[in-house]
Amino acid sequence: MDIRVQAEAFDAGAELNRFSAGAEGAGGVVSFTGVVRDLPGGGLTAMEIEHYPGMTEKALTDFAAQAMDRWALSDVLVIHRYGALAPGAQIMMVATAAPHRRAAFEAADYLMDYLKSRAPFWKKEITTEGADWVAAKAQDEADLDRW
């Protein structure tokens, strides 16, 4: 398990290659990369991501351990950034390796749902008009019930 919370940018391609090469016994690797989405028509200056140092690392490690156990994964990678990110920048990535594809897909989906609603991150959109905290969506909460 490799869990990282960092301000620095990461190279998703290089991370995925390194992760895949190290995942013993895996028959498949699934990855998801989250990107800062600009507003329709532009106007987003930055996405500021705040987090709770200490709790963030604990929560991500906990979710990854649960996924490892539930889907008998070969390995899990979670990278999540904080700080001010420009539109188009990579925010986070999750990769899961498993003997068979279904487990890798489901575990990645599970991790994303928990990262969205249960990991202590908060997004603030800085636009040319001002700044606004991103509100959590009811759908994100409902997604957790799938697990």
């Binding site: 709790m55 908060w122 905290w133």
Partner: peptide, 10 residues
């Protein structure tokens, strides 16, 4: 003790 709004990670 930490207080905060619903989380918006990912």
């Amino acid at each position: 003790v930490a207080f905060f709004p619903p989380m918006t990670g990912g």
